[in-house]
Amino acid sequence: MKIINNENTFSILFFLILFIIIYFVNFFVGSAIFERTVTNLFIYIILVVGLQVFMGNSGILSFAHIGFMSIGAYSSGLLSMPIKMKGFVLRDLYPIFENVAFDPILSILIGGIFTAIIAAILTLPLMRLNDAAAVISSFALLMVIHSIVVGWSAVTNGPRTFFGLPKATTLEIALIFSFLTVIFAFIYKNSKFGLLLRASRDNDIAAESIGANIVYLRWFAIIASAFLAGIAGGLWGHFITSFSPKSFYLKETFLVISMIIIGGSFTVTGAIAGALLVTIGYEFLRWTEKVIKFSDVITFEFIGLTEIVLSITIIIFLITKPKGLFPFKEIGDTINKIIKKE
């Protein structure tokens, strides 16, 4: 299969058009809350498609993804935070960083690269594990990263809020990064590396017999995946401008896993669809929670409904549609078929 083929081109074009439509819808709605949601959506697409690059092609569930996101968010924030803020937020900061204040976008890119390097160092030995051991080790990795973030107060402000980041992520920037991520995911999936890794997902013995080194294939995938998670973290950090270690923990892990399971982890289309649908569902439920809260019908605090609905949805999906809404075919395959018929 060639990297540039009809299916890929159609898929990428489809998402380009979809993203532009979303952009214009936002433009016409003109509400700040809506724009916030849409920007968040594009960041989540980077995150989930990033997870798909590893999980979809290797077939291994990774809990560490949100951990990588936190590395991107903290490291980029550390680089871009204005010097005045640094003395205020991080009192015990190492002198090297004290007088550093890079451009936010540059910081986000460096944050992504830094995350990829950390992932490269930490994950190589883990890549030979399979099944339960692989998942538990990725879970342990999330816990390690989380504990370091909580404990290393000098650069993270510990369990307290890390704030003072310049608000640099706009809708346009998130959209562009998101689109680049989608292009990368499609190219990777149909590259030699992606094809071999997918072959190993379905049958590791057969893949090894044709000379695929599964450990390295998985390693490349998780480095790329971590890079994208780091970028997503940086973008999110410079969008929300203040966060704490709690923002990158089990609840968020669950959210990202829901997205990829509902959409379907084997396809990029599935990852994007999952991010889109869960975001819509999430916003709708949040809104419901608020409406119920502010109506005088029920007086107690009304929280948790969103997660309950999400977890029930996931369980139903895994029972009835375990491979998600887009189990095998990308949207481009479908478009290609329709065009050929006519």
């Binding site: 569930l61 998942v135 669950f254 829901s258 409904l305 369980i315 375990p322």
Partner: peptide, 22 residues
């Protein structure tokens, strides 16, 4: 798959926690 089972138990845990929260 092993993964499916893991995620359903993770989802069920989230369900119980949030039921307590709610």
């Amino acid at each position: 798959s092993v993964t499916a089972v893991l995620i359903t138990s993770f989802a069920f845990a989230t369900l119980l926690q949030n039921a307590a929260l709610l």
